[in-house]
């Protein structure tokens, strides 16, 4: 479907289970996924652009769908920073959007994103990169469990050889957070987190948390008698019998 849309130079939005791709003249200009932090989160993480700056930019240029251009022209960010960050987030969201889907894909013609074009990516390049990324993860550590499950640290102590960026990921692993939560907390592209988690899994430092067992009926778990009390009673009885 995507290659057909590219061939007919379509403009609109492709809606898939795990993300959306915006096309303009058959090229991908923007991508979003619930699994990845958006451009706003990435730029807010180190205080480059706060919520107020985004509101101002969307109010000024959202209707014209030129918010990206406005941010650069008004001096809030450099053109290079916008291109690097946006391109990174586009490939990041596309990796998840183009992943396996259990719902039908839909395309809405004509829709455009308020950010406006930054650096359009050909559909073929995006699809090729998505396949390459899947293979990269598989080469590092073939078990995909850490991609989606809640994560926990193993009992192995992390040695001094854990690189800084992996250490930051490891620090956010708490038995509850998933890879997507860790990415959001760090303001870092989600695929980067998947790569670091596979490396940490390969080093035996992180595993997927086991699924919670169903709760056992409380009748079965209540002890009929406290074993310690029973032991103490037997000891007392034995002492008294001496």
């Amino acid at each position: 479907m995507l290659s057909r849309l590219a061939a007919e130079r379509a403009t609109g939005v492709l809606l898939r289970e795990r993300g959306t791709l915006y096309l303009a003249d058959g090229e991908v200009v923007h991508a979003e996924s619930p699994a990845t932090p958006g451009l706003d989160v990435l730029f807010a993480a180190r205080g480059v652009l706060d919520a107020e700056a985004w509101r101002e930019a969307v109010a000024a240029a959202g209707a014209r769908r030129r918010v990206g251009r406005f941010l650069v022209d008004s001096g809030r960010i450099s053109k290079g920073a916008l291109e690097l960050c946006h391109l990174g987030s586009l490939y990041d969201a596309a990796y998840f959007a183009l992943g396996p889907s259990s719902t039908p894909t839909r395309f809405r013609y004509g829709a455009a994103h308020w950010l406006g074009p930054v650096r359009p990516v050909p559909v073929a390049a995006l699809e090729r990169e998505t396949v390459r990324r899947r293979e990269l993860l598989h080469r590092i550590w073939p078990d995909p469990a850490t991609d989606t499950a809640p994560l926990m640290r193993s009992r192995l102590a992390a040695g001094p050889s854990v690189p800084l960026r992996q250490e930051a990921v490891l620090g956010r692993v708490d038995g509850v957070r998933t890879a997507a939560d860790v990415s959001l907390a760090l303001g870092r592209p989600a695929f980067h987190t998947l790569v670091d988690l596979r490396r940490l899994a390969a080093a035996g430092l992180v595993t997927a948390a086991p699924a919670q067992p169903p709760p056992v009926p409380s009748v079965l778990t209540q002890p009929s008698d406290d074993p310690d009390v029973a032991l103490l009673r037997r000891l007392r009885d034995a002492l008294e019998a001496l």
């Binding site: 990435l42 730029f43 993480a45 180190r46 480059v48 960010i77 920073a81 690097l84 960050c85 990174g88 960026r165 760090l186 303001g187 870092r188 592209p189 980067h192």
Partner: peptide, 10 residues
Amino acid sequence: FVRTTFDSSV
């Protein structure tokens, strides 16, 4: 290596 004002590895 490019030092950026957002998290990256470029």
